[in-house]
Amino acid sequence: MSIDALSPGGKRRSGRLDIRNAVRSFNAVRAVDGVSFSVEPGKITGLIGPNGAGKTTLFNAVAGELGVDSGEIRLDDQRIDGLPPHKVFSKGLARTFQIPRPFGGMTVLENVMLVPSAQLGERFWNTWLRPGAVAREERKNLEKARAIIEFCGLTKVERQLAGAISGGQQKLVELARALMADPAIILLDEPGAGVNPALLDTIVDRIVELNQRGMTFLVIEHNMDFIMSLCDKVVVMAAGKVIAEGLPEDVRADKTVVEAYLGGAAA
């Protein structure tokens, strides 16, 4: 099996994400303060803004880890706000973490093998009552996992514990895990942070190739080269609000954006 067999969204889903008036507060602080924007299917949308702008909080709210206090989040016109993270994932939204969260005590291969939903062998009685069916399913998933691991350039480390590989490789493990589920959209939280340049090229490469195959991305990133070269559209957040959105070159020229980043010094 090759990576060609990957089908973003499992064909039924397009990966359109609509965020409407999303609010998420921590006590008195409105970390996400009425955010609205859309991620178009098949596009790479960048989410930028200074530290503390609320980008990761928005990710956590969208992915169901935090949820929203008010507002609506729709994935392909289906409401996903209020769902717990595992349900959001099953709707076709996968995410990676700013600081990678591999299952450190498991091999890279098993990190990826974990992902397919509703595996027969995840019900322990099936391992006793239907061992043949479980083994067949494992072989199928193994083949797919190997193809994805190869696509992500991790074949050499597939037998190593995910806790023992480099941070950049761990980011690729997270991407591989996300791909294993054929998501409709992938949320990447700073895929380039702390990654050496060679690996960063690999990561960018893979994102571009996946996007060409129709995968939708929403990417938080501080690396401006990355954003400018990769994104079809950029959304800028500051202090919990969207202060600009548009084409990368327009956003870069936007005065409010420059002020937000430089704390008004440029004004």
Partner: peptide, 24 residues
């Protein structure tokens, strides 16, 4: 089996497991 993998994933990182569709 996949069940053992599921248990270990919960042991290693519940948040990550939930983000991958598992119900901790």
């Amino acid at each position: 089996s996949p069940w053992g993998r599921l248990l270990k994933a919960i042991r290693e990182d519940e948040t990550a497991a939930a983000s991958l569709g598992k119900n901790p």
